[in-house]
């Protein structure tokens, strides 16, 4: 695990394909990114952060769509803002939903292939649409498509020219659970083929399923980076507050305090108590054991600060 907020954190074991060195970006008075440094190589890397953390700005900088206010970015060894040839080796799933609305999916993907110089753009488009489980013979224009289908068209258009680096900005938004699994499999497969795949998300569970390296961005700063499991452990170490509803909340709280997994309690009613723990894993194991040992019926366990924002706040503040 690379420690959180250590600059510059380095992820890439070998063969760095994306190198970001002390990059900051100001959008007027707003600091979108502040002194961000990391490097990544082939494989899947997840860019995790709450909405407004600066993920899309960072991805736009990596694709050259906007420049950094400060610092340097190298993708495959060149400046993405100025190197035209690099754009033929990049694939982007942009955050915006808009596509060429009057065109069919196969036309859009073939257009992307053609613009990137693919010789058989039509054949490549059919193949790419197959990868995302869309029918290349669908005659409907994409304006009739659901959000999930549009996302898949964007993914197909991003990979149709066989790019070395694939950048995906919230690509799982709007997909149903089955399609999410399928899409995650595709990203993992692209990474296993030696491509650098950078996927942004604000959903922790999604990132877990990538089984990948993780960059955590919060408030424009790189809060943590490393293997997902290490990040998860780090998150488990933070203080958690939970509300327990039980047949005898006072006795349950006392048993947990005695067991050492709880550092504080606040009795709300005879059946409800707030508990603070810094050992989430041990607490999860100790809770049912303590309840069973005391003969107490456990009615409900509600985490009060398990939302992503609180996790990011913890990572940034520590």
């Amino acid at each position: 695990m690379t420690a959180a907020a250590v600059a510059p954190p380095a992820l890439a074991p070998t063969g760095t394909t994306i190198a970001v060195d002390r990059v900051s970006k100001w959008l007027g008075p707003v600091v979108a990114l502040s002194d961000v440094s990391f490097s990544i190589g082939p494989g899947v890397t997840a860019l995790l952060g709450p909405n407004g953390a600066g993920k899309s700005t960072l991805l736009r900088i990596l694709c050259g769509l906007t420049g950094a206010s400060q610092g340097t970015v190298r993708v495959l060894g060149v400046d993405p803002r100025t190197d035209l040839a690099l754009r033929g080796r990049l694939g982007l799933v942009a955050q915006q939903e808009t596509l060429f609305e009057q065109l069919r999916a196969v036309d859009i993907v073939a257009l992307s292939a053609g613009l990137h110089g693919v010789a058989d753009s039509s054949g490549a488009a059919r193949g790419a649409l197959g990868l995302v489980d869309l029918d290349p013979d669908d005659s409907r224009p994409v304006r009739t498509y659901s959000k999930g289908m549009r996302q898949r068209v964007k993914v197909a258009a991003a990979v149709v020219h066989d790019p070395t680096v694939v950048v995906l900005d919230e690509p799982l938004e709007g997909l149903d659970p089955r399609q999410r699994v399928r899409m995650i499999e595709l990203f993992v497969q692209l990474g296993a083929q030696g491509r650098t795949v950078l996927v942004s998300s604000h959903v922790l569970d999604e990132v877990e399923r990538f089984g990948s390296q993780v960059l955590v961005l919060a408030k424009g700063r790189l809060a943590a980076s490393g293997d997902f499991r290490a990040i998860r452990d780090l998150m488990d170490e933070r203080p958690h507050r939970l509300r327990l509803r039980a047949s005898d909340a006072r006795r349950l709280a006392a048993a947990l305090m005695a067991g050492g997994t709880v550092v504080g309690t606040h009795l709300e009613s005879p059946e409800s108590v707030l508990v603070d723990t810094v050992l989430a894993g041990a607490f999860r194991r100790a809770l049912p054991q303590a309840a069973a040992a005391e003969g107490i019926r456990l009615l409900e366990v509600t985490p009060l600060d398990d939302d992503l924002d609180s996790v990011f706040r913890y990572l940034v503040d520590r």
């Binding site: 769509l65 035209l84 040839a85 754009r87 982007l92 613009l115 990137h116 258009a157």
Partner: peptide, 8 residues
Amino acid sequence: VYLWLTPI
């Protein structure tokens, strides 16, 4: 973005 991000 789809036009701009091409090597043309």
